[in-house]
Computed example of a mutant assay.
Amino acid sequence: MSTPTADFAAITAFVLELEKLKGVLRKNRPLGQTRYENTAEHSWQICLLAMSVLPHASEPVEIGAVVQLLLVHDIPEIDAGDVNVYDAAGRAAAEAKEEAAAQRIFGLLPAETGAQMYALWREFTTGTSAEARYARAIDRMMPVLQNLNSAGQSWRENGIRIDQVTRMNHPKISGMFPTLWPQIEQQLIAAVARGDLGAAQDE
């Protein structure tokens, strides 16, 4: 039977495990810095982006639920690491690792709380709710904005082309933010002209 002492010990173990997320490096560098950002920073930033663009959403969402999804969605990267979103093979290989990581890490919590957080992670992953679609759009929007404002830093480092960026991001972002995507698309075209982003493969 669960006790307050046991519950708090489990919660403590979980939140201290999250310290490791601060050491998981992503592909983008914070603007004006030479180091790479970590996943914990990314999670914080996209929560604020989600709150900021709410008036532009194409359907109503509960922003508190969106923030919950964004806060938990990358926790399995503690075990699985960050994979370049444009690396299809790497993303497929990471899925099983992320599932195992989610079960392990959320399993540190008291059973009911752990099950709730795992359910949030699954909701984001499957994208079945309006809140999950919103959260997934935000998760894709932030790296695009970073690259557009850093001379295409991670795009250039990884040889990314505009057709890859459009194919990966357009479906998620334009569906939820139809008035914002055209603005992003114009900036992508300008990025190609500047040499910050590769031209489409068939050009």
Rank of each mutant, 00 (worst) to 15 (best):
I162G: 04
R122T: 10
K172G: 11
S43D: 14
T126I: 14
L69T: 02
L71D: 12
K22S: 12
V83L: 01
L25F: 09
G127D: 09
A40T: 01
E17F: 04
R133D: 12
R26M: 15
I160P: 08
R136Y: 08
W44F: 14
T34W: 06
I78A: 02
L71C: 11
S43V: 13
M141P: 08
P182Y: 00
I63H: 01
Q103L: 12
D7E: 15
S2V: 11
S154R: 05
A10C: 02
K27T: 15
M176E: 08
L21N: 03
D87A: 07
E41F: 05
T166F: 08
W181N: 02
I63Y: 00
I184S: 06
V24F: 00
A88T: 10
L108P: 06
E157H: 06
G114M: 06
D74P: 01
E185F: 04
I138C: 06
R161P: 04
L25M: 10
H56Q: 11
P60T: 00
P55R: 05
G64V: 09
L49N: 04
A190F: 04
L188D: 06
L70G: 04
E131H: 00
I162M: 09
A100W: 03
R167F: 09
A6D: 11
G90E: 03
T113Q: 15
A13F: 01
I78R: 00
Y134I: 08
Q164E: 15
A88S: 09
R140M: 13
I63W: 00
G127L: 07
G175Y: 02
H42F: 12
L71K: 13
V144Y: 07
F8H: 12
Q201R: 12
N158H: 14
T179L: 13
E17M: 10
G127C: 08
Q68L: 13
S150V: 11
K172M: 15
D7C: 09
T5W: 06
M141Q: 06
I46D: 03
A96N: 03
G64H: 08
R133P: 14
A80S: 15
V67L: 08
S129Q: 07
T128Y: 08
N147K: 06
P143T: 01
S43N: 10
D163C: 01
V165F: 01
P178L: 00
R161E: 10
T128G: 13
A100M: 01
N149Q: 10
V24D: 02
D82P: 07
R122I: 00
M142N: 11
I138W: 02
L69P: 00
A119M: 03
L148E: 06
N147A: 09
M141V: 07
L25T: 10
L145D: 08
